[in-house]
């Protein structure tokens, strides 16, 4: 059964993975980290990624159409950012208790497979909470 460390280590087996973290987007705290972080600092990266995740989770423009019941849950599944040399994938984790947690995966663009990573990270987020 995966805990935080097992989940992060599994994320690091994806092609091109440079670093990964589990982050709380309300406080900006990294609950667990593995590998490298942009700029070498996981804590700063977590705080910055948390700001972005919060905006996506809180703004109604990014929520699914009215009628779907997402009460108290994050309406967004994931966020994808690309730049010249890397991808960032942020996957919201739906938990069985009140939380605001996401997985952050940093991928090298040359080796990374964004579609594969997105599917795998979603599966990992599910297993992390449901076992």
């Amino acid at each position: 059964m995966p805990g935080i460390d097992e989940c992060l280590l599994e994320a690091m087996t994806l092609p091109g993975a440079r670093g990964a973290a589990v982050v709380d987007w309300t406080s900006g705290l990294a609950l667990g980290t593995v590998g490298d972080a942009p700029g070498g600092d996981h804590e700063t990266t977590a705080a910055e990624a948390a700001e972005l995740a919060r905006l996506a989770a809180e703004h109604r423009a990014f929520a699914p159409a009215a009628g779907s019941d997402w009460s108290e849950e994050t309406p967004v599944e994931d966020l994808i950012i690309s730049n010249r040399d890397s991808y960032h994938l942020l996957r919201f984790v739906r938990t069985t208790f009140d939380s605001s947690v996401f997985l952050h995966l940093w991928l090298a663009r040359s080796e990374g497979n964004l579609a594969l990573a997105r599917i795998r990270l979603g599966e990992m987020a599910g297993r992390l909470v449901l076992g």
Binding site: G3, I4, L31, T95, T96, F97, S99, V129, L130, G131
Partner: peptide, 21 residues
């Protein structure tokens, strides 16, 4: 709680770490 299948290891870690901080 984890061994008896009441909650997953990940859920316990996430929730407990959150409450600890």
């Amino acid at each position: 709680l984890v061994d008896s299948g009441r909650i997953s290891k990940g859920a316990l870690e996430l929730c407990h770490l959150g409450s600890l901080y």
